[in-house]
Amino acid sequence: MKLKIGVFKFTSCSGCQIELLRINENLPGLLNLMDFQNWTMASSNVQQGPYDIAIVEGGISTPEGIEEIKTIRRNSKLLIAIGDCAVFGGIPSIRNWMKQREAEDLVYPKPEHLKSMKVSSIDEYVKVDVYLKGCPPHLDDMLEALKAAILNIRPRLRQHPVCIECKFYENECLLTTYKQACMGPVTAAGCGAICPNVGRTCEGCYGPMSNPNVKSMVERLREIGLTDEDIMRKFRKYAGTSEYYREVARL
């Protein structure tokens, strides 16, 4: 029997869903296994739940969002959080570090109409079964999670740092050889080292690896000349609210 799937979006840029749309390339195989019953980005034919799997993009930043994610959770057997916004709050959570009204004033001419709160990961409100980190997560990770869901096993997601994948591709080391501010040594792999593959430093979009040595990483970044302000921004960018980065992101 095919799995019934719903795809949902909260505070985010839809980039994760765009990545998920690449599923097209794998569609023939995948459609044998699953039925996307509610995915407004892909089809206007929306069927209400319950679903076997809810795939959720985005963080929670409105009171309505809280109710909505709780409803989704109730209607789904398995909940997969896709992307840093759903997993950590993501880029929108950069505003968590300033006063809410200051952030609103920066963006909106009439912020008094807003019903917005600080951004949080969805597991602030509901239990999440699978976390797919990344901005966006790699399609391979999404497929791995879906396959694992069908087999009812834990997906094989890389928790080790990007450095490992960089070595798989024998990339030059941007941190040691070029003294560039590469976040690879603290960032979870799974992206396939796509940035270092083209000579760009890892920005840290997969969030913290399984046990990053944040303190030492800060020292390394200072050694190559970053200011504490620069370093704070690096850690704040994607996963500043995460347990490991919170302290540095607050600096």
């Binding site: 794998n26 044998n32 396959k147 740092p161 690879g184 040594p185």
Partner: peptide
């Protein structure tokens, strides 16, 4: 940093993982 670089680039470090990957 537990980045693993030392062992990945070591010419005698042979440790490996085994895992299965299914197609769709």
């Amino acid at each position: 940093l537990s980045c693993g670089n030392c062992s990945m680039v070591c010419p005698v470090c042979y440790c490996f993982d085994l895992y299965d990957s299914l197609d769709l």
